[in-house]
Design a binder for these strands. Sequence first.
RNA 1: GGCCCCAUCGUCUAGGGGUUAGGACGGGUGGUUCUCAGCCAUCAAGCAGGGGUUCGAAUCCCCUUGGGGCUACCA
Length: 472
Amino acid sequence: MRLRFAPSPTGYLHIGNARTALFNYLLAKKHQGRFILRIEDTDIARSKKEFEAGIIEDLRWLGLNWDEGPDKGGDFGPYRQSERLKTYQEFAEKLLKENKAYHCYCTKEELDQRNKELLARKESPRYDNRCRNLSDEQKKKYLEEGRKPVIRFKIPEKTIEVNDLIRGKVSFDTKLMGDFIIMKSDGKPAFNFAVVVDDILMRITTVIRGEDHLSNTPRHIMLFEALNSKIPEFAHMAMTMGPDGSRLSKRHGATSIREYRKLGMLPEALFNYLALLGWGSKKDQEIFTKEELIKEFSLERCKEGAAIFDPEKLTWMNGLYIRKKKPQELAKLSIPYLEEKGLREKEDYLIKVIALERERIKKLSEIPDLIEYFLVEKIKFSPEALLLSKKPEVKEILTSLKQELENLSDFSAASLEKIIREWTKNNGLKTKDVFHPLRVAITGRTIGPGLFETMEVLGKEKVIQRLMEVLC
RNA sequence: GGCCCCAUCGUCUAGGGGUUAGGACGGGUGGUUCUCAGCCAUCAAGCAGGGGUUCGAAUCCCCUUGGGGCUACCA
């Protein structure tokens, strides 16, 4: 079994495309097949090398490792369309010779004009196949006019049945289609042609792609037939939508893997979440390891309807995966985010801090704000915290508590808890009337991890220091 | 416009002739606790509409509606 993911390097890896790549990957791995990466860069104007590199990086980051691709080669390369231009020409030549394709001299302007007229008459805008049987004389005349021909495929009249692995049989009547372009006037292959040639040459057996290609599939099938090649199996998965139900796009906010990666999503969370978009297990299970997904995945269980990408559920799942990570791992992952905010800290201290805050982290990008008060010399007070710290009765409590703490030599959480609870009781106070002000004084905020653990990690010196600052 | 695909809580989904229509996210409430988070418990929320078929339809068929796609010298 050979499957491929074939992105165009015209931008960063889109969530929807990543999902397509993921499904291809899962099926390939499930059947011990090959997962192949192919770069469709025939659109020179929009394709950029940096996007190709970006897509490769993000696919790797997500954990979708391919067996053959432009970066690692393989027996059926090249894996970049721009490197097979000659091949497309040869295949087109062959179709021309066999009278299955022909040159068309109509200009873009003429075509547009005719389509407009057809539309005005409420007819289907499509090519009228007028160049199918041009005389040599006419061809010569057109050439003399300086027209650069395209090559069109001569569509046979028939009904094409696509046996889709997700949707079942879908049939198309080719009478409704005009002869389509396989080679553009600049000598580059049109998408519908390049895909077929590539899939033939790369021995692709199964094509999993977006539903937007379903309507193109009859064209592909005709081409496979014209080129006497085995037709691969097709599976068209429903599109990924934004919250308003339209195709997920930039106006919905972050749409690329790169953006979510920068936000601090873990690859395993994204992997798991994306697998659940349009596919579901028969069990009530939602959290899967990569291996479980490979084992469980099947096209039969793929949904036919479109799925709306839900960043909130992704975030929840990300929090879950974060809580499963070891503090030292998280500490390492947090470093770029801390540095971005100009924060830097010794590893062992950072690990302790992160261990305390771990269950509050939903995205790595939240870490700096969450732990800042552990790292900086001068803490910021939230408005609410500031108000509380100014209260006379609070100052009174903190003043005498400070003395108590100054005399304390064992600053462990257990010891602190024992002493402070006793002190509270002895002074006839309620725990929350002591704990809360204390937290506010030493952290500048009203929320956070356990008070005594926080104090232990901060250390006696910082705790006393911060109490002094509040009291003066 | 023509052709094609799709339709279970707000969202992701399970269920494919007989179910109190199940779970998850998000939301509400309560518990745990020094706060938050987490965890636990609990509640609200759905078969798009209309016709068939059938003893019986979320489930099968048709229509309508709604959404999406293709119809490019984009991919």
